[in-house]
Design a protein around this nucleic acid. Structure first.
Lengths: 383, 383
DNA sequence: CATGTCGATGAAAGCGCATTCACATTAGGG
DNA sequence: CCCTAATGTGAATGCGCTTTCATCGACATG
């Protein structure tokens, strides 16, 4: 309707863009078109398919655009073309605003940092940018409004957004769940999933302790109330124990409320003070707690791995740097982000809709000093 | 022109949205409006200003939206309201796609990770989401198209996008330069800047070595060809030397091509093998090289800090974990991201346009074992 | 010379929403 | 019970772009 060149009779004189040019506003295709003596269609073509425009014309347009400081509006472009060229990621808000500066949650953040890195890299390869948002204080409503409405598809880290909400959104655009298991009832969960082999990883690690080191009395230490990750890892632990004929309780020996180093240290003390024989190995559900335990054990004068073996899970950088270096299960977090993007891109590339995908990424056991597999040099070997 | 209810005569019957509903397309305000028996204006109001809609009406609309899986289009919203609610960050592409999995560039990436974290956190506080993009292979053109056109304002890490281009864009929307000095000719640089006090930090650190530890023969090791950061740090080094009457060459003792640990190790070897007295202290322009040097010195049987002092710059987590822990200058990278967002938000909040701002964030010297200020416990104290 | 072909350009329409009026409805005041 | 003032809702318009579709030349072909 711009300029109302056809038969319609309207109120305003169609001076909109003439008016806009007078104030110092953001230049649009109209300004560039006028300045270079072409139509807006040609300006658009210069950006969308440069080869379809004669070279001389193209130069004129680009010159005008440059003089005006013209940048195409992503909103308008997205609206007209029905796609944004942006993928999204929603992750939980680890950083409590009160603890700014505390480096305590560093490891937890590393998790999302790595996923961000992987997604950004893969998205870029496919020509997408990445929009990130931690879960907002304003509740999931705003999260969805902020992200879901602005992207062609997005990934969500587990337990960031309610499942029902994701279901509704995923009816209309691709959504990938990161590090969260598929819902029990598959009819309620049509998302794609990318997980790591928590159970298999813990199984392998446990098997190594039992089989290669001959350990029999193992204590598993979990965290959180109902973390699916911890549950899966514990299942792997039990499976390995069962296969080797080692007795293992039906529940973790300890279940700490949080996944911090402090809690790990506390867990180590509790296990040492319990009546009966001290376990030969402390199997922790993550690295942070295991590191805390290393410190607590050192303080008690217990040597790792000679007096007690300690293992972790995640493979955070710190796990390699502590002394003794921590035997753990390495999670491919960067790759997780990359796989998520690949899934999204596949869904977006006009393939016929398929069944929901569940990717289970393999993990690797890092056998290091804390189980007795390596010497303990004084200086970390880095890089 | 939708439905063409006014006097215009047009070709199509305005069936657009009826048609769309039949295919399984993304629902729009029109679908929600129809389903809940209101106009699209009311649907819009339900999201933009819920209080202006009667409660009963609001519930009807929300119910319809939920049934349809409606998510407001960020593009349309942005186009109509002339803002996106998104801030951007462009950072250099550290990750060479060939070295995926190599953890060598970890520390360099940590730098951008932390800035991302800071920006995301601050952006969220102000109700913005964050769009991130590393510099694209397709050249800066696509970077700008991807980011600049989609955000209300953005930050750029130094040497990611050519200055002229930033100048053009910044005429129309706020742009903040991160960790890059203002151009020599201020008339060519109207960006806001956020920097860290590189010079002062290196000055303080050097002063500490000279003044508190009585060192006189210091060797400065830089990297890169023309890194402004390294230059600033070296200026601080020289200033401290000059004030203390310690002789310092006009140029760094060594200037390695890259900022890696391997180069740091090589630098340490070169300095040890040079003719003449070995310097008492190796002052590195970043932590990674310093860590590499620690390893090389250990291999040569030289004790740090007893035989030679080593210092770094940046305060990466690794600096605290190596043995001996590295004396270094801590950069407030998270805060840098936060300050950048604050600057952007301030410019966006309709303030009268002001002069370009240059923020110089203070740094802190971390005095640790590698200069002789701390004991060296076997196990890193973490958290 | 008429005709067909192809490349370059312009005209027009619409993407999904916010927003401005105008209008309808209801509540308050006399 | 009428008039005015809120209050709630609808019609219409444009945000800046992409994308047909039509047009217009410039040529090559018969």
């Amino acid at each position: 309707m711009r300029f109302h060149r056809h038969a319609c009779i309207t109120r305003d004189g169609g001076l909109t863009h003439e008016r806009r040019r007078i104030v110092n506003a953001i230049p649009t295709v109209y300004d560039v078109a006028e300045r270079s003596g072409v139509s807006i269609a040609t300006v658009s073509r210069v950006y969308r398919s440069p080869d379809s425009v004669r070279a001389a014309t193209r130069e004129r347009v680009l010159a005008a655009a440059s003089e005006l400081g013209y940048v195409p509006s992503g909103n308008a472009r997205g609206l007209a073309s029905r796609s944004t060229g942006v993928l999204g990621l929603c992750f939980p808000d680890y950083s409590d605003p009160d603890t700014v500066g505390a480096e305590d949650d560093d490891a937890a953040m590393l998790y999302s940092d790595q996923i961000i890195r992987g997604m950004e890299r893969a998205a870029r390869r496919h020509g997408y940018a990445l929009l990130i948002a931690a879960s907002l204080a304003g509740g999931p409503e705003s999260l969805v409004a902020q992200v879901a409405g602005r992207v062609d598809g997005f990934a969500v880290m587990a337990r960031t957004v309610p499942t029902e909400e994701l279901e509704a959104i995923s009816r209309r655009r691709p959504v990938v769940m990161l590090a969260g298991p598929r819902a029990q009832d598959p009819s309620l969960d049509h998302l794609d999933h990318v997980e790591v082999a928590n159970e298999d990883g813990q199984y392998e690690l446990t098997r190594h302790l039992v089989h290669d080191h001959g350990l029999r009395r193992l204590a598993y230490v979990g965290f959180g109330e109902d973390s699916p990750d911890v549950e899966a890892r514990f299942r792997g632990f039990r499976r390995a124990c069962a296969e080797a004929g080692v007795e293992a309780a039906a529940a973790p020996a300890l279940r700490m409320p949080m996944m911090t180093q402090a809690e790990g240290a506390r867990a180590a003390r509790l296990l040492c003070e319990r009546s009966g024989d001290r376990p030969e190995a402390f199997v922790f559900a993550n690295d942070q707690m295991a590191v805390g335990a290393l410190q607590a054990l050192e303080r008690r004068g217990l040597r790792v791995p000679d007096d007690v073996v300690v293992t972790g899970f995640d493979g955070i950088p710190l796990s390699r740097l502590v002394r003794p270096a921590l035997t753990t299960v390495r999670q491919p977090m960067v790759r997780m982000g990359e796989e998520a993007v690949d899934l999204l891109v596949r869904r977006l590339s006009g393939q016929p809709p398929q069944e929901p995908v569940s990717l289970m990424l393999p993990v690797g056991v890092a056998r290091r000093a804390s189980c007795g597999c390596e010497e303990t040099p004084v200086l970390p070997t880095v890089g």
